[in-house]
């Protein structure tokens, strides 16, 4: 089993190496590490590989809404040089352009809102489909067979459901945990599969995008504060056991604390996943910076190693995000606020 995993990871890293080496063959003149940030950020197209001068990419829809022109649909390839696949202000199309940094802009500078299906949005859809399909097939099993021993998708999902319910929700929230279990399970599965699928070579860094983690953190923030009981708010605005004068300092700190909790959630997941991707790609880039086979072999081994660590990180981060969400909810619904702090 261990040997299989090792071989598989070696193959994956070899694949990564090969597909990035072709990138470098074509872009010898460019900065040899620019592909790292390009991968980590969102993009209007999904670039898979470059063979000599042929770019294999998936052009994605660009959706724009502006007050004066309404909703408009374009294809990201409309804004590209057809030879080099480069974006640039000079390739403007119907008043819009995508610059070299993959930013959508409007030629006349008027304001607009963008709803493009970017690379991360596609990745998001894939994760939603995978998670939704797994969960629904698991549920279909129970609807069909009743309360029997699980099989198939149910056997994959059930341990996770029980883990989230018993070891996260019940532990961190307390007697009222049942209401929050569905949200926590969905959150765990979404983050976990997002992290894992993001590790596939060529996939997008979706859970390492701050917009994605922000939305999840904001949902947790809303759920926590909507469910906050009397004790919770009393703890914030009339912290028990604190002299009245000290409340002038403590209350602002508590109020800031309400927002730092989801902020920490947002940043933690974003940083952990993005850093992982950067480290893996950084080791791959070493081979091209030094242009040496020895370093190539060494960095491939390191990439394998980091990939294994990233599998761990993917799971830990999903666990931590769900656990902290459960703890914040738990502090909001706890019946007896602790008077000591």
């Amino acid at each position: 089993m261990k040997r299989k995993i090792l071989v598989l990871s070696l193959l994956i890293s070899a694949f990564l190496l090969v597909f990035n080496s072709t990138t470098f063959a074509a872009e010898q003149e460019e900065d040899k590490t620019s592909f790292i940030m390009h991968h980590v950020k969102d993009s209007h197209e999904w670039h898979f590989l470059t063979l000599e001068h042929t770019h294999i990419t998936l052009p994605l829809p660009v959706i724009v809404y502006s007050g004066d022109r309404g909703l408009e649909f374009f294809n990201s390839s409309d804004f590209q040089n057809h030879e080099t696949h480069a974006f640039g202000e000079e390739y403007a199309h119907e008043g819009y352009f995508i610059d070299e940094h993959d930013h959508l802009g409007r030629v006349d500078g008027a304001s607009f809102v963008e709803f493009s299906i970017t690379k991360n949005v596609v990745m998001l859809f894939i994760v939603l489909i995978v998670v939704g399909w797994l969960a629904l097939s698991a549920a279909a099993f129970y609807n069909k067979n009743g309360a029997v021993a699980p099989k198939g998708a149910a056997a994959i999902i059930e341990p996770i459901v029980i883990f989230v319910r018993d070891d996260i929700a019940k532990e961190a929230i307390g007697p009222q945990y049942k209401r929050f279990v569905p949200y926590l399970i969905t959150l765990f599965l979404f983050v976990w599969f997002g992290n894992l699928l993001g590790l596939i070579p060529g996939a997008a860094n979706m859970t390492g995008n701050i917009a994605v983690t922000m939305v999840l953190a904001v949902l947790t923030f809303i759920i926590t504060n909507v469910n906050g009981n009397k004790d919770y708010w009393k703890h914030v605005f009339m912290t028990p056991g604190v002299p009245p004068l000290m409340l002038l300092i403590i209350v602002p700190v508590e109020i800031i604390g309400l927002f730092t909790k989801p902020f920490a959630l947002m940043v933690r997941l974003f940083v952990a996943i993005t850093a992982g991707h950067i480290v893996i790609l950084g080791f791959i880039a070493l081979a091209f910076i030094f242009e040496s086979y020895t370093i190539g072999v060494a960095s491939t081994l390191m990439v394998t190693f980091i990939n294994l660590i990233e599998l761990l990180v993917a799971t830990i981060q999903a666990y931590v995000f769900t656990l902290f969400t459960a703890m914040y909810i738990g502090s909001a619904v706890a019946e007896h606020a602790d008077a000591d702090h």
Binding site: F115, L128, M214
Partner: peptide, 18 residues
Amino acid sequence: MDLITPGTGLIFWQLFGF
């Protein structure tokens, strides 16, 4: 598409997708 600037499109799709 900056690293620490959340994109409006992704926020929208992520919110409604999730």
